[in-house]
Amino acid sequence: MSFAAAFFYLFAAVLVGSAFMVISSRNPVYSVLFLILAFVNAAGLFILLGVEFLALILVVVYVGAVAVLFLFVVMMLDVDFVELRQGFLQYLPVGAIVGLIFLAELVLVVGTWISGPGVTVTKTAVMTYPKGNTHAIGQVLYTDYIYFFQIAGFVLLVAMIGAIVLTLRHKANVKRQNISAQVNRMPEDAIKVVKVRPGQGI
């Protein structure tokens, strides 16, 4: 067994194990932490494949931003996950059957892939970029794929507008900071000097 293969099995085993722990652990915070472990191992698999850009994006975006955001949400919202998961075992048999059917279909479909006729016509050579695939992606992302890149930007804009439209509420009774009022406040407005005689109070 070669060095790379050993690492492949290591990453794959930890990935599958931690993915299982994500859905089975009782504490939601542990679930998110296992999710992070799963992401990091998936990144390891990407590096073994030689796609270091995807690997690092996975770590930076998913671990650095998305998973941490999950962690915040889980910690800040008081969701009773035990209650949510109560029907889990009850639905397991049906879910398992559906999963098996899907698996069988996938095997059937993927099984015919080798004999897919005519694929060779459109088969393109693997891109060989001497400076690595980060460089390669950088060369095409803003040139050949500028159209998709811009549409994706608009999709994100819609998501942002949508989130604001549906959730932002201007409440009337919220106390907000009024900076000009603060700056214009004079000592006379706020402080009253009172001469207090000893032993008498005000």
């Binding site: 059937l108 015919t112 897919g116 005519g118 016509v121 459109t122």
Partner: peptide, 13 residues
């Protein structure tokens, strides 16, 4: 390109 390749129905297609 798909039209060029997809000339006969296969299971996956």
């Amino acid at each position: 390109e798909i039209a060029k390749v997809a000339t006969q129905p296969s299971l996956g297609l």
